[in-house]
Design a protein around this nucleic acid. Structure first.
Length: 641
DNA sequence: GTTAGGG
DNA sequence: CCCTAAC
C-alpha cells in the first residue's frame, strides 16, 4: 500500500485541467442528470497526473461503479463511506456551488479521489472476502461473521467498535492513495451520500483503514518461493508484467497479488491474501490471520448489508427453496445461515441460462476469469449479486466458475456448464433421474435414449414403472430443489453432459434437419420414433385418464418422456386408432398393419387400442374414412380410472 | 394453456 | 411432426 506521505503528496499536487474538468463535471452533475458521456475513467498517477484508465483499471472498479449507480446506499454502506469520506472533506458544502474557489474544489476532488481509491481497494477486499465467505461453509470461521463487534475486536482489540462511538483518528486512510480509478459519477455519488449523511454514528475510519490497509508484509520469504507479500507495488507490477506480458498500472497490492498468483498458478483457486507461490503451486500461509481476518475486518460493515441483499436475492429467486427471511435485522444470523448453506445450495441452471451462459462465457471467459476480484461483485444490484463462490483456500471443493444470472432478476449463481440441448425443449426433469432408484434411472435413461436401447422389448411395460414415474413426477418439485442442493459441480456437469448426450440422441440418428417448405415454413424438425414402451404407456394412459386428456396423460404417464408433448400423444393415439382399425379390417393376425411403421406394434396392443377406442366411442377410425368420418362423438370419454 | 384437426 | 383454430 501506499504510504501516508505519498497520499499527502498526491493531494497537494497541482491539479490538471482534466481533473478540473472532472471536478466541474462532478459538481455540476449533481444538480442535473449527468450525461453518461461525461463520465470517464481516469487514473491518478502518483505525481497527480491523470491518465486514461486502462482496461485493467476499468475492470478493477467497474463493480464499484455499478454500486455507485445503484440504489440508495444502505446504512451500512453509508457508514462505510462516511468512514472514508467524512473526516477530511467538507462535504457539507453544497455541491452545486461552482462559485467556490477552484482550488477548494480541486483539493476536495483530490481528497475524494483518494477516498474513492481507498474505497475501491476496500471493495476488492470485500469481493475477495465475500467470495471466501460464501465459498466455504466453515462454521468456526463463519461464526466470526456473526458479530461485527466480534470481528472488529478480533482484528482491532484495542479499538472497540460501537456505533456512535467514533474515534476520529488521523487520516491514515490517505495512505491508500495510489493509482486509482476515479469516476466523476463516483465522486458525485459520494458527495450526495455524504451530504445526505448525518455525522453521527460513523465508523472509525482508522479502524477501517487498518483493516483495509493493515496488511502484514512480514510474511517470510522462502528461498525459491515467490512471496508476493514481500514485494512492493512496483515489484508486483513488474511481476505482473512478467506474468501476463503486459503492464498494469493498478497499484492495488492485493489485486496485483491475486492476479499474479492466479497467473502463476494458472488457477483461480487463489486464497484471498496469501500469495506465496512456489513453482506452480500456491502456498498458503497465515491463512487465518492474513487471509481471513484482514478481509473480515475491513469489510465487516458490508456484511450486514450484503447479507440483506443476499437474502433478498434468495427470497426473490428461490421461490420454494427457502422460506423468505424478510427481517433485515436478523441479517447476521441469516447471513450465517447463508454461509452455512452456500456451499450446498446451487441453483440448477436454467435452460435459458445454460444457453446464454455458453455464449457469454465463451466470449468473455478469459478476460473475466482473469480478474478474480471482479468475479465476486459487491453490488447493490441484486441481479448482479453473487450468492457465492464454491471456491476458496479453505475448501477442497473444486472451483466452479460462475456467473451472475441476470435473468429474471434471480441473481443467483450457477455453475458453468456447457451448452446443452438445442433441440426441443427438455424438461429439467431428466436430470433428476440420477437421484432416483436405479431402476428408474435406468428406465429414464433408456427412454431418453429411446430408440437405441431395447427397442425390441416385446413385453409390456410394467405398471410399476408407471407408478414410479408418477411418483417421480409428483415429487418433481422437491426433487428439483433437492438436486439444486445436493448438486456438486461434478454432478451438475455430469448431468449436463448426460443431457447433452441425450439431446444429441434426440437428433443424432433421426432427421434433425429443418425442412423448409416451399411456402416458407419449416417442418419435421425432429422425429423421434415411438418406442414400444411409449406406446404402451400411451395406451395405458388413455385407459386410465381417458382419450383426449392428453395433457393429463402427458403429465402423469409421460412425465419422463419430456420430448413427447400432449400433441404428440394425441397424434400418436390417432395413429394408433387408425392402425388398430385398419388392422381389424385388413388382417387380424398381422403385426404390422402399416407398411411404414417404424415399430411394429404388437397385435395385443392394437387390440387394446381398439378396445379403448370402442370404449371411448372412437370407433370411426377406419382406414378409408379416418379423416372424413373419424370424429369423436363427444368428450364423454373420461373416467375409466 | 389445451385440444382437435388438417397438413 | 408441424401448424393453427377453437376453446
Amino acid at each position: 500500500m501506499g504510504t501516508l506521505p505519498e497520499a499527502k503528496t498526491s493531494c497537494e499536487i497541482p491539479i490538471t485541467k482534466t481533473l478540473d474538468e472532472t471536478v466541474r463535471l462532478c459538481v455540476s452533475s449533481n444538480q442535473q442528470v449527468a450525461h453518461p458521456v461525461v463520465y470517464k475513467l481516469v487514473r491518478v498517477e502518483g505525481d497527480g497526473r491523470l491518465v486514461p484508465a486502462t482496461d485493467d483499471e476499468v475492470m478493477a472498479v467497474e463493480d464499484f461503479l455499478d454500486d455507485e449507480r445503484s440504489q440508495p446506499a444502505s446504512l451500512e454502506e453509508a457508514r462505510i463511506s462516511r468512514g472514508f469520506l467524512s473526516d477530511e472533506i467538507s462535504l457539507k458544502k453544497p455541491v452545486g456551488e461552482t462559485t467556490e474557489g477552484r482550488e477548494n474544489i480541486e483539493a476536495d476532488a483530490e481528497k475524494l479521489n483518494a477516498r474513492l481509491e481507498f474505497i475501491e481497494e476496500m471493495l476488492q477486499r470485500v469481493k475477495q472476502e465475500e467470495r471466501l465467505r460464501l465459498s466455504c461453509g466453515y462454521p468456526d470461521r463463519l461464526s466470526k461473521f456473526i458479530s461485527m463487534d466480534e470481528m472488529i475486536l478480533d482484528k482491532h482489540d484495542q479499538e472497540p467498535y460501537t456505533n456512535g462511538n467514533l474515534k476520529e483518528e488521523n487520516p491514515v486512510q490517505d495512505s491508500a492513495v495510489n493509482a486509482r480509478l476515479i469516476n466523476t459519477d463516483c465522486v458525485e455519488s459520494k458527495i450526495n451520500e455524504m451530504l445526505a449523511m448525518s455525522t453521527d454514528d460513523p465508523i472509525t475510519s482508522s479502524a477501517l483503514l487498518n483493516d483495509c490497509t493493515g496488511y502484514n508484509p512480514d510474511i517470510s520469504t522462502t528461498e525459491g518461493e515467490i512471496c508476493l507479500d514481500s514485494l512492493s507495488i512496483r515489484e508486483l507490477q513488474e511481476t505482473f508484467k512478467s506474468t501476463f506480458g503486459r503492464t498494469t498500472s493498478v497499484k492495488d497490492k492485493l489485486w496485483l497479488k491475486r492476479r499474479i498468483a492466479m497467473g502463476l498458478t494458472n488457477s483461480y483457486d487463489v486464497p484471498t491474501t496469501n500469495f506465496v507461490i512456489k513453482g506452480k503451486t500456491l502456498i498458503s500461509k497465515k491463512v487465518e490471520r492474513d487471509g481471513f481476518h484482514d478481509a473480515v475486518g475491513d469489510t465487516n460493515e458490508h456484511y450486514t448489508d450484503m447479507s440483506v441483499r443476499l437474502q433478498h436475492c434468495q427470497v426473490s429467486s428461490s421461490k420454494g427453496l427457502r422460506k423468505p427471511r424478510i427481517e433485515v435485522e436478523d441479517s447476521r444470523n441469516c447471513e450465517y445461515h447463508e454461509v452455512q448453506t452456500a456451499g450446498k445450495r446451487i441453483r440448477k441452471p436454467t435452460k435459458r441460462y445454460i444457453e446464454e451462459l455458453s455464449e457469454v462465457e465463451t466470449r468473455e471467459c478469459s478476460g473475466r476469469l482473469g480478474s478474480s476480484g471482479k468475479s465476486c461483485r459487491h453490488s447493490h444490484d441484486p441481479q448482479r449479486f453473487q450468492i457465492g463462490h464454491l471456491q476458496g483456500d479453505f475448501s477442497s471443493r473444486k472451483m466452479i466458475v460462475t456467473r451472475n444470472d441476470s435473468l429474471g432478476g434471480s441473481g443467483v449463481q450457477v455453475p458453468y456448464v456447457s451448452r446443452v440441448r438445442r433441440g426441443r425443449p427438455r424438461q429439467n426433469f431428466m436430470a433428476l433421474m440420477k437421484y432416483q432408484p436405479s431402476g428408474i434411472a435406468a428406465e429414464a435413461v433408456e427412454e431418453d435414449f429411446g430408440m437405441q436401447i431395447s427397442r425390441q422389448q416385446g413385453d409390456i411395460e410394467s405398471f410399476q414403472t408407471e407408478t414410479l414415474s408418477q411418483q417421480i413426477q409428483q415429487a418433481s418439485g422437491d426433487k428439483l430443489e433437492k438436486q439444486m442442493v445436493i448438486d456438486t459441480s461434478e454432478q451438475l456437469k455430469t448431468v449436463d453432459m448426460e443431457n447433452a448426450d441425450s439431446s444429441a440422441d434426440d437428433t443424432s440418428d433421426e432427421n434433425v434437419a429443418t425442412v423448409p417448405t416451399a411456402n416458407g415454413g419449416t417442418r419435421r424438425k425432429h422425429h423421434r420414433a415411438w418406442t414400444l414402451s411409449e406406446v404402451v404407456k400411451l395406451v395405458e394412459g388413455v385407459s386410465r385418464y381417458g382419450a383426449g386428456r392428453w395433457s393429463e396423460i402427458k403429465r402423469l404417464a409421460f412425465a419422463s418422456y419430456s420430448y413427447r408433448t400432449s400433441v404428440d400423444l394425441k397424434d400418436k393415439w390417432r395413429n394408433l386408432l387408425r392402425a388398430s382399425f385398419s388392422q381389424v379390417h385388413a388382417n387380424k393376425g398381422v403385426k404390422t398393419p402399416r407398411k411404414h411403421a417404424a415399430i411394429p406394434i404388437p397385435a395385443p396392443i392394437l387390440i387394446r387400442v381398439r378396445e379403448l377406442a370402442e370404449m371411448h366411442g372412437q370407433t370411426n377410425y377406419y382406414p378409408s374414412s379416418s379423416k372424413l368420418v373419424g370424429k369423436r362423438p363427444s368428450k364423454n370419454v373420461h373416467e375409466i380410472r
